[in-house]
Design a protein around this nucleic acid. Structure first.
Lengths: 224, 224
DNA sequence: ACCTGAACACCGTTCAAGT
DNA sequence: ACCTGAACACCGTTCAAGT
């Protein structure tokens, strides 16, 4: 998908811009100014061309974003040394994916990818499925386990990065504080109990804890 | 937030449109044609007014969407009978939230909400936190447990609804098939093993399984 | 106080034509 | 084969003015 098209025997006009150049430029815009600034028009002018020239190299903006994610994954996902213990291997592989995504918040817009973020991430998926299988799950259950881990991971990224986006304009944060300050302790006693600690509690990074709990639960034999 | 503003002693011109009417109309557009069709201009014309009149009743489009989610939650989240067993109570409350969200896929665009979708959902959050606490977690761990459940739930909704969106234009699906068909069985043996079953495996609804695994893992005493 | 009209500063994409 | 220009059909939001 992201590999440059093989150089053909140029039967027509020589290309002025390449898909690679488009992606490289798009990456720069996103890194420097955020994904919201990436428009076909802006990208075209940055690349020294016209909006319509881009459509000769990518089908539409959606494809461009997927290409960008693929490019990002290929460049940044380095395969780490994984623990021998299968359960720990699954945890480590999921954590590696999570870290790569967390470092790149614009990804949320594209995180729409259903099963896996990119073919470059397949190796990590393999490690998770294999870890779960070696730890005792059937192949089917291992795949379902992987999916649960992916839901949890994608959800953490989406919720956290959009919460961070909200925090910038802080009206909403203070609104939330008001809600928690005015909780009816009779109707919602547990929430009232933790109301004053809600902000720090929810700011804590508990990805690892939740991941370990999930993996633990997936591996525990439970009655269907 | 969503309650109609108290009728003041009209010192100026009488309002022609109300916030309530705006939200009601927005809801109709979203239900009938999807959230993508909800634009300020379209909404204004549907309500028999001008785009700018809307800005007198809502701050911007973002606020409108949050209002819409709040409205949806208030109207559809009915408190179910919950099981007495604390663990089952947490599972049932999470499932209720999940069902409400799953029935309303446009929500993904707004699911950006950080901790909770709406104040109307607070009761459900209470049930989850309380279930976890009564099952043995400290208040802090119960809140963190709730967050893990929320990540998992939000992630499932986001991934599933965007996957469904992709399935309509099926280029991407067939691309994915190609990738799985051409897997190197030496490098990625587990994935190769399940390659031909990947589509049905990932289409299965396993929200409940994953949720139960997660809750199980959260409640299992584990070494830090 | 509430609403209107006109404008600003944009979008993604299609179509027909050029080289 | 690749690129351009002009156009289509939109956006959210601001500003100044009207009633």
């Amino acid at each position: 998908m992201s590999q440059p098209s093989a150089p053909r025997r140029t039967p027509g006009r020589p290309p002025r811009i390449s898909r690679e150049e488009i992606i490289r430029t798009a990456r720069r815009i996103v890194d420097e100014e955020g994904v919201a600034k990436l428009t076909m028009r802006r990208l075209a002018s940055e690349v020294g061309s016209t909006p319509m020239a881009l459509y000769h190299h990518v089908r539409d903006k959606e494809e461009l974003l997927v290409l960008l994610l693929d490019d990002y994954a290929t460049r940044t996902l380095r395969r780490p040394e994984l623990p021998a213990d299968p359960r720990e291997r699954a945890v480590a592989a999921a954590t590696a994916i999570h870290e790569a995504l967390a470092a790149c918040p614009w990804i949320v817009e594209v995180l729409t990818a259903d099963d896996l973020m990119s073919t470059s991430a397949l190796w990590f998926v393999e490690q998770i499925v294999d870890g779960l299988a070696e730890a005792g799950l059937s192949p089917e259950r291992a795949v379902h386990g992987y999916r649960a881990i992916w839901y949890y991971t994608a959800g953490e990224i989406v919720v956290r990065t959009t919460a961070a986006r909200r925090r910038t304009d802080d009206d909403r944060a203070t609104y939330r504080e008001q809600v928690f300050a005015g909780l009816d302790a009779d109707e919602l006693p547990r929430l009232a109990q933790v109301a004053d600690r809600w902000a720090p509690l929810t700011a804590t990074d508990t990805y690892q804890d939740g991941l370990r709990a999930l993996v633990h639960g997936l591996l525990a034999a439970r009655p269907a």
